[in-house]
Design a protein around this nucleic acid. Structure first.
Lengths: 214, 214
DNA sequence: TTGCAATAGTGTAAAAACAACACTAATATA
DNA sequence: TATATTAGTGTTGTTTTTACACTATTGCAA
């Protein structure tokens, strides 16, 4: 029972954001291949902390929503060595700025989930699972708010839902449903867009929190 | 990146069944304390396989529904050593027989979830999370069928739902809903109970499979 | 043999949730 | 001042969900 097996335990993160109207993942380049940000869990480090640390070190992203996804431990997932990966996904608010954060120590790029290059190890499977989970959670939680900037319009929120679900939603029904959840409130400000009627701005009532609904 | 940290990786399982009208967990006695079945993951062993192996070795349970729940890795969850636990939950069909299976190598006991004794490490938290997940899954999957014997009556299935949810359900509405899912079919046989009208027996249409619904 | 106790089995109506649908409002620019 | 563009708003029909009560079949006991 107290046997310590030699293995590599890593945390891997799927950082999602909406980029140019598409759901995108932040990838890290290692030599010639792309992989998810992540790396070994420290000897005295919490799993979540390891995920946050690697994400910050490799991409500059901090202070974002993070949720454990699944643990991958097939003996052959990393050729040669025994590696177990605790996978997470993270949600990055639109309007985030990598530049604001700690400089990344790796080459990174946002890539649309539908245009993923070949990824290291089983990272493609991790992305696929994360994407399914995110889409499923839209239906029964307020998780989409974690992808929004502090202030946003209802049209922007609807676009985020549509992009993740891959289908168009009815504007009136969407607004009715979201407002009934009582998870956002009008700021009183208007978005100063150009060429058309300005939109009311909203903010999350409980910004850090993801509520279950229904 | 290739650092191998010394740590104990275990698989821990929460085996659920309905015992005497209550949701129960199969516990294993170790010295004077109770714990979940489980133990170290082998050096070349898949995580799921490790969970199944320990469950079989320690309790005699095999061939049952198993699903990964969450990975617990707080540095101090096991005093002294660094231990990471990949937690699973398992569903045991009513009418199962431990005696049929391989003899268990440990003292085991089914304990109602509402009467749990003090458990080793963070196993109480694992049970709590597993219980929440199971209850949530009732709403959007056919997972309850994994707790049923091959043939069962609708009243029995309803009782299982009621026990897990902790609330009574309307008989007619329950039947309508379950039958509409098209996940069970009548066997044509009747349950030979005594003292009242016999009930029709049903079986799962796809016994091994858990379908998502709605 | 008849009555009682116990669980099985069945339908309808009201309420709530969801889905479909089209026009007016406010702004920037040409 | 006309046009293009997006914001914003209610109603109606359909579907889903909920609430609800009686008859049927059996074993057992009187």
């Amino acid at each position: 029972m107290t046997l310590r097996i030699p293995l590599l335990l890593t945390a891997e993160i799927v950082p999602f954001a909406i980029c140019t109207e598409r759901l995108a993942v932040l990838l890290v380049q290692q030599a010639t291949t792309w992989r998810l940000p992540g790396g070994p869990v420290g000897g005295e480090e919490d799993l979540d902390a390891a995920a946050r640390r690697h994400l910050a070190e490799q991409t500059g992203l901090g202070e974002i929503y993070l949720e454990q996804l699944y643990t991958f431990g097939e003996p052959n997932r990393d050729s040669g060595q025994r590696a177990v990966a605790v996978a997470y996904y993270a949600l990055v608010r639109a309007g985030f700025s990598l530049a604001d954060a700690v400089p990344a120590i790796a080459e990174t790029r946002w890539v649309a989930v539908d245009d993923m290059p070949v990824l290291a190890l089983d990272h493609a499977a991790i992305v696929t699972l994360a994407r399914r989970r995110l889409a499923a959670k839209l239906a029964y939680s307020t998780i989409a708010l974690q992808l929004m900037p502090e202030c946003f319009t209802l049209s922007q929120l609807q676009a985020v839902h549509e992009i993740i679900l891959g289908e168009l939603l009815d504007k009136r029904n969407f607004r009715k449903r979201i407002l009934a959840l009582d998870c956002i409130e009008a700021t009183g400000e208007m978005a100063r867009q150009y060429g058309h009627r300005p939109a009311r701005l909203f903010r999350a009532k409980r910004p850090g929190q993801v509520d279950f609904i229904k």
